[in-house]
Design a protein around this nucleic acid. Sequence first.
DNA 1: CAAAAACTTAGCCAATTCGCTAAGTTTTAG
DNA 2: CTAAAACTTAGCGAATTGGCTAAGTTTTTG
Lengths: 120, 120
Amino acid sequence: MSLHDPDLDRIFQALGDPTRRALLARLLEGPAPVTVLAGPTGMALPTVLRHLAVLEAAGLIASEKRGRTRLCAVQVGALAATEHWLNRQRAIWEGRTDRLEALALSLEAQDDAVRPDDRS
Amino acid sequence: MSLHDPDLDRIFQALGDPTRRALLARLLEGPAPVTVLAGPTGMALPTVLRHLAVLEAAGLIASEKRGRTRLCAVQVGALAATEHWLNRQRAIWEGRTDRLEALALSLEAQDDAVRPDDRS
DNA sequence: CAAAAACTTAGCCAATTCGCTAAGTTTTAG
DNA sequence: CTAAAACTTAGCGAATTGGCTAAGTTTTTG
């Protein structure tokens, strides 16, 4: 499980763009309409709108139409899920590190760690 | 700072692909040569090699040529840096959440949170 | 030394991504 | 009711991505 988690795909991909991280950072200070978010980016509105759509598809933000403006706000859940995944990965690493530190990239490593069983 | 961190770009983008997360997960169990890593993916070797190159460019793994094989191993530093970034973002959110929870997506939010100062 | 193993390089292709401009649409202001 | 504001949709073009096959190159094995 979680080896091919589409949610995780979308979240990481969304965070992989500096413009989107900037938008998210701005939203962490409070909700804002699209035009306000677009301001600092110096980008055209449709461009920013698509970045926001990516963030929303990833569950990182939510938005709601209020009259003629759309108000966007952070949705911290996805961020927490991501942290959780990273935590788990690092935990796995740290659980093994005592056993591996002696051989990482060393001679035995090649023959010893290569086939501890490849349960696909 | 960190609004346009190329390292963060590469790390998140690298983690945004399920194949690469699977490769990383496999490497968390111990170092392995390219062919072994390629096995479970069912992909052609050059394809896997490029995924590994992406992971390495992001600093998530390291690799070393040993004879005719290349041994790959996790480099946990980048993972930790990513966790750190996420932690910081969530901390910002949680620091504001008390102030914002009352207005998130509400009426005042629009006019009040829009211009707390936009230091770009 | 001949050949197999394990990459490595060099393309090719389809799909996606990131930016843009131009032309709607829907609300609100006058 | 007209017009400005604030999206929204449509579509375009260059660049990147993710997959492949084919043809090297370097080591090891027989």
